[in-house]
């Protein structure tokens, strides 16, 4: 196919920002015991080698591919009964352990460069001061990688050409092209909240490569594409390599490797899990912006950088101030 060399070139260009992979991936051949370096080497090697269109375009070829795809039907819940999921993006490094990650003073530990660790601490300080600059407060989308951390239900639509990940929250859709294409050249990618994702199947494992995040703008002076309620963040240069597969009849596990040469000192490995919900479960459409149409108008506007809670009998013009909602710091590791 003519597209192959263009794909490879596009990959070569888009790989320019990714740090060089280590060559010693032998010890990484064991499932479930991959070091960060091993995952990186393995992921990069497959993205370079394996992007080829599948089949000859005939219906038989397509049917054969479809028959080989795993069953990801059903409705899935982020996290699982055996893994308490907080709002931390990376539960493994969240502190306090297994905390919700929703309250100021709780944080995780991305492998930030010193200047970005300082920025993260600044965010945490501002949260403690009562300021609300999370994009969620403005009903903006989650995007990648935050969509992976939505607490609500998910659907995975798997076809030979594409995989769709549909989140119940805001009905956000993440598209993963598995038709053999690579990424467009960097200068042609339309930056987006979810970026541009391409993937291929290795048996029952979906390997996904995502680039093309919109360069974060700022919201109230803070990056407006953040990972979680602790306001951890990445740059627009972030790239994600994921491996997703079922680890049981009712569980999908994803190993995500985040490369961000701007903010991170090394690849950041995060594991996520989805659990299948009871048969008959269905996905609703939960929209943040409904709050604006509910009785009494917007109940939780942001005024002066501070989240409000409007009550029916508020005195006219009443506004909560940041110093009213200051939070006592919790112990930080």
């Amino acid at each position: 196919m003519l597209k192959t060399s263009a794909c490879t070139m596009a990959l070569a260009l888009s790989l320019a920002v990714v740090p060089k992979a280590g060559t010693a991936a032998d010890e990484a051949s064991q499932e479930g015991a991959l070091s960060a370096e091993g995952i990186e080497a393995r992921a990069l090697s497959v993205t370079l080698e394996k992007f080829r269109p599948r089949g000859d375009g005939s219906k038989q070829a397509r049917d054969q591919i479809a028959a080989s795809l795993p069953d990801w039907n059903g409705v899935w819940e982020n996290g699982g009964l055996s893994q308490r999921v907080g709002a931390f993006f990376d539960n493994a490094t969240g502190f306090p352990p297994r905390a919700s990650g929703m309250y100021a003073g709780e944080r995780e530990h991305p492998p930030y460069k010193p200047e970005y660790e300082a920025k993260y601490r600044e965010h945490l300080g501002r949260l403690l001061d009562g300021y609300a600059f999370d994009t969620f407060n403005y009903c903006l989308p989650a995007g990648m990688p935050r969509i992976l951390n939505f607490p609500m239900a998910f659907e995975f639509i798997v076809t030979p050409e594409m995989v769709w990940m549909i989140s119940e929250a805001y009905s956000e859709v993440r598209r993963i092209y598995t038709d053999g294409r690579g990424h467009p050249p960097r200068e042609q990618i339309v930056p987006g909240w979810n970026g541009h994702s391409v993937g291929h199947w290795e048996g029952d494992t979906l390997v996904i490569d995502t680039v093309g995040l919109r360069n974060p703008g700022t919201l109230n002076g803070f990056p407006d594409q953040i990972l979680d309620r602790t306001a951890a963040f990445l740059s627009g240069e972030a790239r994600f390599i994921e491996r997703m597969r079922k680890t049981g009849p009712d569980m999908i596990e994803s190993t995500l490797v985040i490369y961000d040469p701007v903010t991170l000192t090394r690849p950041w490995v995060v594991r996520r899990v989805w659990t299948r919900m009871a048969p008959g479960s269905y996905v609703t459409d939960a929209y943040c912006s409904e709050a604006r149409s509910s009785e009494g108008g917007e109940r939780n506007p942001v005024v002066g950088g501070v989240s409000q809670m409007k009550l029916p009998n508020d005195p006219p013009g009443y506004v909560m101030k940041a110093d009213q909602v200051k939070t006592q710091p919790k112990p930080q590791k």
């Binding site: 009562g130 969620f136 989240s307």
Partner: peptide
Amino acid sequence: LVGLAAPALAHHSMAM
């Protein structure tokens, strides 16, 4: 059994 393993979306800071 689908008791929340994760907190629901809070669209504002819980600091208040």
